[in-house]
């Protein structure tokens, strides 16, 4: 069944998009990630204008984060003080991200910037995940725990230290804030929640207890994506409410099934799969610019969209 998307300005097959969002939701529930890094690229590959895909997925990530954040909040698994610092950074990052997004859109470079950023961001994160998990699989004796234990020393030695009672930590707010700015920036620019960066960063770099990491990162993701959606809607008018609705429907339900599904494999294989997934999306984008195009020409309307 075809449905016409009023902002994207083209008809799409509802069941294709719904099926896609259920699948991405399932994967995100399974791996405990937001799934934006899969959803936005898949929509772009479907032919939806990148600006519309990014802006609309932001709202869907907000919806998915509410469900997750509420579940963790009920279990008291959220460090609100840490969440506040991360959220403030995320908001600053989202504002910068949308400003950059609009500037690139005006100059006609937005599509290229999105593709390159995806390759760089997902390529490096996916590559790191693959490397780390393969190392853990091939050399099980080398404990990554012991190696990283001392590394957070620098986060303690910086100024503006703060006590995070819930997490039992005392670390500088500067690197935390900068990390959140970075994630907010790319989140708003690329339509990704950034959980797949924030969660490992909090665990491995800042030594935040695993029990509160996911809940806290979901709170940060929720507020950052709410701000990003509002800014996209207010400045570049690219949020397609019908597309958002379909994505929310599919992804929230898909995520519930994903969260209930268990795959009985060891955590390092689990991380290997996630790494493959992230790296795979980067490769798919890279293929677009590495493989000689069938038609070297492309045409883009430069007046008001449609």
């Amino acid at each position: 069944m075809q449905i016409y998307l009023p902002i994207a300005g083209l008809p799409v097959d509802v069941f294709t998009v719904l099926g896609l969002s259920v699948a991405v939701g399932f994967i995100s529930g399974l791996f405990g990630v937001g799934g934006g890094f899969l959803m936005t690229p898949l929509l772009i590959f479907l032919g939806i204008p990148p600006a519309v895909a990014v802006a609309s997925v932001s709202s869907q990530i907000a919806a998915s984060s509410v469900t997750g954040a509420l579940a963790y909040w009920r279990r008291r698994a959220v460090d609100f003080k840490l969440g506040t610092i991360l959220t403030l950074g995320g908001i600053v990052g989202a504002v910068l991200g949308v400003v950059f997004f609009n500037a690139m859109q005006r100059q006609g470079h937005l599509d290229a910037v999105i593709v390159f950023s995806y390759i760089a961001l997902l390529g490096s994160i996916g590559g790191l995940m693959l490397f780390e998990s393969l190392k853990a699989i091939c050399f099980p004796s080398t404990k990554t725990e012991a190696a990283t234990r001392d590394r957070h020393g620098w986060a303690k030695s910086l100024p503006f230290k703060m006590q995070f009672h819930h997490s039992g930590l005392e670390i500088s707010t500067i690197p935390l804030f900068l990390l959140a700015v970075f994630i907010g920036f790319f989140g708003a620019l690329l339509g990704v929640g950034g959980g797949f960066i924030l969660v490992p960063a909090l665990i491995y770099i800042f030594r935040v207890p695993t029990a509160v990491v996911v809940g806290t990162s979901l709170v940060q993701q929720l507020i950052t994506m709410v701000i990003a959606t509002l800014l996209h809607a207010a400045t570049n008018h690219s949020v397609d409410i019908l597309l958002s609705l379909i994505l929310m429907l599919g992804a929230t339900f898909g995520a519930q099934f994903g969260a209930r599904a268990h795959i009985g494999i060891r955590p390092e294989y689990f991380r290997l799969l996630l790494g493959l997934l992230v790296f795979g999306v980067a490769l798919r984008f890279a293929a677009d610019i590495l493989i000689p195009p069938r038609d070297t020409f492309s045409a883009t309307r430069t007046d008001v969209a449609r």
């Binding site: 907000a62 469900t67 509420l70 709410v226 929310m248 929230t252």
Partner: peptide, 20 residues
């Protein structure tokens, strides 16, 4: 744009809460 954005956000929050 702002009102539209707020409507989308309300929809997102409502959706997330209902699913929850």
């Amino acid at each position: 744009g702002v009102a539209y954005g707020l409507a989308v956000i309300a929809m997102a929050l409502g959706f997330g809460s209902i699913a929850s």
